[in-house]
Nucleic acid binder design. Structure first.
Lengths: 234, 234
DNA sequence: GCGCAAACTTGCGTGCACGCACTTTTATTG
DNA sequence: CAATAAAAGTGCGTGCACGCAAGTTTGCGC
């Protein structure tokens, strides 16, 4: 029903994607992230440069994908796997933390690489937004009463919280610009006054462990989940 | 204290930015969004093409900025203007709706233009994320007990809710791809099954008015704001 | 007024994203 | 198994984002 035979066509696609991912990561580690051209990655994967962009929309996405892989769908699956009676807020929170808790050695090396430059960092944070769509599906399943729109908002809020936690986690040696991790649009406003003072002052958890940061970031959303589930107080 | 004299340098910058914005919008309306090159916009604003990118990171940003302008900072100001006793959730919600409720004729024309293509739509939604930083500041002011991290998450959630509302609002004639409006990262997951069925079924508010959509999108977050404020039940 | 330092602009060059048209490969149907 | 449809890969051309290293303007202290 799900995948009778995966189909030869599909296998080739996945193989190509994985080849590109790994080639991108390997070359980036070997020569430094800025000294790798798309042409090199494509060649290392045995494919045309043009084909590269059929798989990844930006150069950084390929590198980041080597770490991200299909984390999003696994999070959704992990949420769906929790028993039906559990508090949705807990189910989501634990599923997310569980999937972001990896002692993988290769991933740690990749993350070190990602933390070096702004471009890769942004791509990594953008990739984290990928959990929104799968999360919306599973959340909507449990919130049949509240409507799809509520599920959308809650899933997006979780994605935002994850992004914030990751931002805080990556903020170690490099000076992060400000509060928001969004693209240049914020700068266009020209306000640029008090935001820095917030970003600069490290009042909150200088650099705690990632699970703790994730838990702390998602905690404020729990009441919203409870209300959507119909749980009044406790 | 805020702006003793704005300074001649700053005035020129703002003038250049505005010239670029308006030139971009005018040319896009005249010749269609895809038939305007950066070179044309720069020339119309009397500036070098290279300088254009010193003000806007992408071609679409300039066009969108003509509508967005400094809406973000006005939202923050509107929140700060509410009396201190009001429920924070209401203050934020009303401030946002207030700033997105404009019967401006020129803006309506621009939004019609924006809705035509995918690129402009995405840029517009991205620009909406610009409210996050200013919102974080004002929310953090009122939530001194809960900590800055909570303010960050709540502000980001509001920004996400606004994005979702705008997505739903723009979904009229053009077929939107799915649930998430994020960039191509979601597609990389390969899940792509149930998400479409959610996006396709227009169960929730076929195309209500924007204020209603915004209100509905932000409503699920109200319990989170209440809890952060220390308000137990009501 | 004078000159200095910082900020803004600009030309140039590089790599990249992506539309279009075309070839090659895979899947399906009679 | 052949014919045909669908989909992925590829070459090419265009416009764009952005780093770098000048050139130019603005602000400020003397």
């Amino acid at each position: 029903m799900t995948t009778p035979p995966p189909g030869l066509r599909e296998r080739k696609k996945r193989a190509t994607r994985e080849a590109l991912r790994e080639a991108a990561l390997r070359l980036a580690v070997e020569h430094g992230p800025d000294r790798v051209r798309v042409e090199d990655i494509a060649e290392a994967a045995g494919v045309s440069p043009r084909t590269y962009n059929n798989y990844f929309a930006s150069r950084e996405q390929a590198i980041v994908a080597a770490v991200t892989a299909d984390r999003e769908t696994r999070i959704a699956a992990a949420v769906a796997a929790r028993p039906a009676g559990t508090r949705l807020a807990d189910a989501v929170s634990e599923a997310v933390i569980e999937q972001y808790t990896n002692p993988g050695e290769r991933e740690r090396q990749a993350l070190l690489l990602i933390a070096t430059g702004t471009a890769l960092r942004d791509a990594f944070l953008d990739a984290a937004a990928g959990i929104e769509a799968p999360l919306t599906v599973v959340v909507a399943e449990r919130l049949t009463d509240a409507g799809v729109q509520t599920a959308r908002v809650l899933a997006a809020s979780v994605a935002a919280a994850v992004r914030i936690a990751l931002e805080g986690w990556l903020r170690s040696s490099a000076g992060a610009p400000g509060v928001s991790g969004a693209d240049g649009a914020a700068e266009a406003a020209g306000a640029g006054g008090p935001a820095e003072s917030l970003g600069a002052g490290g009042l909150v958890v200088p650099s705690g462990s990632l699970p703790d940061l994730l838990r702390a970031a998602m905690a404020p959303l729990a009441p919203a989940f409870d209300a959507a589930e119909g749980r009044g107080g406790p």
